[in-house]
Amino acid sequence: MYAVVALDRWDNALHPTDPKVTVVEATELDVRPSVTVTRDWELGTMGYGTVIGGPEQDGPSIDWRCDRTAVCDTVAGYRISRWNATTKAYEPLHTGLLAADTRAYTDTTAARGATHFYTLEAVRADGTVVGTHAWNCVFQNRV
Rank of each mutant, 00 (worst) to 15 (best):
A3P: 01
A3C: 08
A6H: 05
R9Y: 08
D11E: 07
N12R: 15
N12H: 13
A13H: 15
L14C: 01
L14F: 11
L14A: 13
H15D: 15
T17D: 09
P19V: 07
V21N: 15
V21Q: 13
V23C: 10
V24K: 15
V24S: 10
E25Y: 12
E25Q: 06
E25I: 10
A26I: 15
T27P: 00
T27E: 13
E28I: 13
L29M: 10
L29N: 11
D30F: 03
V31R: 06
V31W: 03
P33C: 09
S34F: 01
V35Q: 14
T38R: 06
T38I: 14
R39H: 15
D40W: 13
D40Q: 14
W41K: 11
E42K: 08
M46C: 06
G47A: 09
G49S: 09
G49Q: 06
T50K: 04
I52Q: 09
I52T: 12
Q57G: 00
Q57K: 14
G59R: 08
G59P: 04
G59N: 09
W64R: 09
R65C: 02
C66G: 00
R68V: 15
R68A: 06
C72A: 06
D73Y: 07
D73M: 12
D73E: 15
T74I: 09
R79G: 01
R79L: 11
I80V: 14
S81M: 07
R82P: 01
W83F: 10
N84G: 08
A89G: 07
P92G: 02
L93N: 05
G96Q: 09
L97N: 06
L98M: 03
A100I: 01
A100G: 00
A100T: 01
T102K: 08
T102Q: 09
R103Y: 06
R103M: 05
R103C: 03
A104L: 02
A104D: 05
A104E: 04
D107Q: 09
D107V: 07
D107F: 04
D107C: 04
G113E: 05
G113H: 03
A114C: 08
A114E: 13
A114F: 11
A114L: 11
A114N: 04
T115Q: 07
Y118C: 09
T119A: 07
E121V: 02
A122M: 04
A122D: 00
V123K: 02
R124M: 05
A125Y: 06
D126M: 04
D126Q: 01
G127T: 05
V129D: 03
V129M: 02
V130L: 07
V130D: 09
V130S: 01
G131Y: 03
T132M: 05
H133W: 10
H133Q: 12
A134C: 01
A134E: 14
A134N: 06
N136Y: 11
N136Q: 13
C137K: 01
N141G: 03
R142Y: 12
R142F: 08
R142N: 08
R142I: 12
